[in-house]
């Protein structure tokens, strides 16, 4: 999901740049014709580093997790498929030595990838928070973005997992308690996001900064109030239903609330970006923005791009890690007394 979403996200700056073939030249640390290097103190440069690291590390972590399973598939197919899966599994043999190095490395990759979740969303939030724009220049942005990312991530996982669980009959692997845990995490992050929205308003008022307060007041009852209240209801009010176990165990209702959360998180981004940008410190550049046909079409196109990658993955790759499932299954023991050998 991460990888496909990052690929979709990467399309947007490229579209934005116009001449996308120059994207690499502008974004990467290469000196320009005047011998000027990129500014390493700019959050936009941090973002290039954060997102490329996030993408690369997630890709490596994901792929190396697939290798033993791809080898398993290789041993069960013939002809050209066998060749392709054999190539993709790097000739994995499953020797004790390979497993030993693999387990160690996989653990380290997990440890390296975990702080990335915090760093990538913090760095994205700094793209906003490091500016002086009212509505963006707040210190709560990094934790607020991290919580928002986990909120929409959990809701999205729920929305993607359920159809797959149903269609592939994975009810014995994806148990009701897994779904419940996902919804509990959604509820937790929803309360954090709720807190962040409220504290933003409080700080805007308490700071005594009239520009900051004007933006926030306008968000709630200005021309973009619709977006604001959709965001509030979808991200903060509706998920409160997950306090009830009855709602959490009702799959259609939870599925619907999770769709609402995804809508709400999209509206949050719209709210943050548009409402702060349309009215900055230069009244001459004030305006009003409504998405036009092409903006909407490009947005829906990105959903299509994500869906394409997702379906290709579901079709050709194991959607549940085979080797990890083998580990949580009862160990294949002979049942004979083995002279007091107890390992692990």
């Amino acid at each position: 999901m991460t990888i496909f979403a990052v690929i979709c996200a990467a399309v947007f700056p490229l579209i934005h740049m116009g001449r996308m073939w120059l994207g690499a030249y502008w974004a990467l640390p290469l000196p320009n014709t005047n011998n000027l290097w990129i500014n390493f103190r700019s959050p936009l440069v941090w973002d290039v580093f954060a997102i490329s690291t996030y993408f690369t590390t997630s890709l490596l972590f994901w792929y190396i997790g697939l290798v033993p399973d791809l080898a398993s598939i290789r041993d069960r197919v013939t002809g050209i498929k066998r060749l392709v899966y054999g190539f993709m599994s790097f000739g994995w043999r499953g020797t004790a030595r390979q497993w030993w190095h693999y387990e160690t490395g996989y653990g380290f990759l997990a440890a390296l990838a975990t702080p990335l979740v915090l760093s990538v969303h913090s760095v994205v939030s700094w793209d906003f928070a490091m500016s002086l724009q009212p509505g963006w220049h707040t210190v709560i942005f990094p934790p607020y973005f991290v919580a928002g990312a986990i909120l929409s991530g959990c809701a999205m996982v729920y929305n993607l997992l359920l159809p797959v669980r149903q269609m592939f009959r994975l009810e014995k692997f994806i148990l009701p308690e897994h779904l419940d845990a996902c919804l509990r995490l959604t509820l937790l992050t929803s309360t954090i996001v709720f807190y962040a929205y409220s504290i933003e308003f409080f700080v805007a008022w308490y700071s005594g900064n009239p520009y900051e307060w004007a933006i926030f007041a306008k968000r709630a009852h200005g021309p973009y109030a619709f977006y604001f209240w959709v965001m509030m209801f979808c991200n903060c009010i509706f998920p409160m239903a997950f306090w009830s176990k009855k709602v959490r165990s009702s799959i259609p209702l939870s599925f619907f609330i999770c769709i609402l959360i995804n809508v709400g998180m999209w509206f949050e981004r719209y709210n943050i970006i548009v409402s702060s940008l349309v009215e900055d410190f230069l009244p001459s550049s004030w305006g009003h923005f409504e998405p036009g046909l092409w903006e909407i079409v490009i947005t829906f196109g990105s959903f299509g791009l994500f869906g394409t990658f997702y379906f290709i993955f579901v079709k050709f790759f194991p959607i549940i890690s085979l080797s990890e499932i083998k580990l949580i299954m009862p160990k294949p023991l002979s049942g004979k007394a083995t002279g007091g050998h107890h390992h692990g």
Partner: peptide
Amino acid sequence: DVLSPTSYH
């Protein structure tokens, strides 16, 4: 060499 279907400690 020992070959195994998954990584048992």
